[in-house]
Design a protein around this nucleic acid. Structure first.
Lengths: 355, 355
DNA sequence: ATGAAAGCGCTAACAA
DNA sequence: TTGTTAGCGCTTTCAT
């Protein structure tokens, strides 16, 4: 019946033959009611299609009804953070909370009950401000050691993920994998670099790391990759004419140039495409002559030619878990000292010689 | 001063020496106050850092404080819809409204004040349900002719965009551009097909259209593209060995095969990458032998090898305009019969021979 | 174990 | 032009 006023708590109470107080307690779960009453009220509420009015509830509870979400400045267009944000939104709206996207430069005291911060950069002033606001803050990924500690932290197991990826390319024949990673002070980039260095040391392999901006342009990634592959990385745009091909014939088995990598692991979201372009220009066949893998999966990785082996970081689930942690804090639970962990999936594709 | 209770309207009223009503009217803009009073109250409010409590406002106004957003089922992972959703969220939160993502199958009467629906598919039952809810509905892109009309429609000029794209590849030498488009009954796909047919007819060109799913897998797009290019589109994964190359030497100028396209325009988000992969397998150099262009720009297009010429549909702005239209409706403005239009930008990249 | 009553912050009738 | 008053729907003392 469109147009009919949605049922209020009073409607439910009357229909159930109890008072508003009892109805509220029965539905809200405060534990001093008879089982019968509780079940009866719940039944009536369900039959009437009762949904608590979030505005009234927030007003009464003294809550703003929103949580603030702080994404890295470069987040726009990065599928990872979009998925993360959707995860936060979906989880929050189940509790009747909305999500406020914090403007990058805003020093404005946002109207929120708490914050979720993801991939905080060392020294980000806004992160410091949030931490000092007195409101609960959940950080997705660790904040830098020196900074004030967030109320709770949720972490992805990037070490395990990268090790799986490196083991994978090693199993496919790569003996000199290189890493393209940001040098920015995010816990993610740091974990990647540390893990890579450890992995190399354990195998007595010389580390080959190159800096790539967190949010790199195609040309930047391509040039760095080209340099890594021993070419000049000239100014020619992506078009690869036949003349450029087969300039560096080599296979994983027979690669003679001792220093040149036979695999490139690309950290920044989407950057593997730049490495593929560089490989093409160098006359290398990706998946055969050169393996390419990405630390962040996305639609672009699946669609690339060839499709790129990547780590599925499950950003949506990650966002949902960050939101859950904040919700628990808001519900009065004690801040959890332990940090959650969730698995990372390796998606093998043609770029590392897989199916 | 963290911990201090945020100022209420009463605080502002007292500080300004007026009543709550006057303060409310001064800030809310109802037009029966002296300029001086209004300015004075606004000044005091600003000095105190007053922000209206959205929960109280919504409760009083009888609003739920949320707008429902319905995205196509395949939206997850498609950057276009993510950007669109962010546009809606950003615009809505400026008005203190939150955005509720409507679950794909939900028949549940969501707790919202109105709806935004984007790219409604012909016969989508949920769209019909929303339209019949009595709440205002803004549709991004037209709904199918037979269905009940939404309260307002916001359209992107896909005809103009596609014409610009076709003219662009024609200017770069393409004489037989093909179109890869979904056959689904979205207004977008229909506009694309109609425009393409018209454009071809005007030039006495034989249309070359192929169906591709709205949300295609890499292999699907690659196979359809390969078939279009005269190859078999076999099962070999994306890896392109040197042996496959230069099988079909040809340039835009000298292409002899009367029927084979010299350009492929790809409609579905990301699908151009599949076309590029197929071109590589066919030994064609994208940007030279074969031009490739996309109807939906994204980070993947910019990062591809070569970067792909694409239409920047400005999804974020589009979402914001849809939200604005709904906000206007909720504010009591009359439904606008005219449909908004916004320009589309053509981003020329190497895949069509550009810089 | 249940009910009565107050009040969260705001806006819209109705007075003055 | 401005102030008084009531009440949106809910949760929470406090009393029974």
């Amino acid at each position: 019946m469109p147009g009919a006023r949605p049922p209020t708590l009073l409607d439910v109470a009357r229909a159930a033959g109890v008072s508003r107080t009892t109805a509220s307690a029965a539905l809200g779960g405060s534990g001093r009611l008879s089982k019968e009453t509780r079940a009866h009220v719940a039944d009536v509420a369900a039959r009437l299609g009762y949904r608590a009015n979030p505005a009234a509830r927030h007003l009464r509870r003294g809550r703003l009804g929103a949580i603030g979400l702080h994404l890295p400045a470069q987040a726009t267009g990065l599928a990872y953070y979009m998925e993360f944000a959707f995860g936060v939104v979906e989880r929050a709206q189940r509790e009747g909370l909305s999500v406020t996207l914090l403007a990058p430069g805003a020093t404005d005291p946002a109207q929120v009950d708490g914050f979720v911060v993801v991939d905080p950069l060392r020294g980000d002033p806004l992160v410091g401000a949030l931490l000092g606001s007195g409101l609960p803050v959940v950080s997705g990924e660790q904040v830098a050691p020196g900074e004030p500690a967030p109320t709770a932290v949720v972490q992805t197991d990037h070490e395990g993920g990268l090790r799986a990826l490196l083991d994978h390319v090693a199993a496919r024949g790569a003996r000199r994998p290189a890493l393209l990673a940001p040098d920015e002070a995010s816990a993610w980039a740091q974990a990647l670099r540390t893990t890579y260095d450890d992995w190399c040391r354990e195998r007595a392999i010389v580390p080959r790391v190159r800096d790539v901006p967190f949010s790199a342009t195609p040309d930047e990634v391509r040039e760095v990759s080209a340099e890594l592959l021993g070419a000049r990385g000239g100014r020619t745009s992506g078009a690869t004419g036949p003349a450029d091909r087969a300039a560096h014939p080599r296979s994983v088995e027979t690669a003679g140039d001792a220093g040149l990598p036979d695999a490139i692991v690309c950290a920044p979201d989407g950057s593997a495409l730049g490495a593929i372009a560089a490989a093409g220009e160098a006359g290398l066949t990706v998946g055969d002559d050169l393996l390419v893998a990405a630390c962040v999966d996305s639609a672009a990785m699946a669609l690339a030619g060839p499709p790129v082996t990547a780590l599925d970081l499950r950003p949506r689930e990650f966002g949902a878990r960050c939101a859950s942690a904040l919700l628990a804090l808001l519900a009065g639970e004690r801040p959890t000292a332990e940090t959650l962990r969730q698995p990372i999936d390796l998606v093998a594709r043609a770029s590392t010689g897989g199916g």
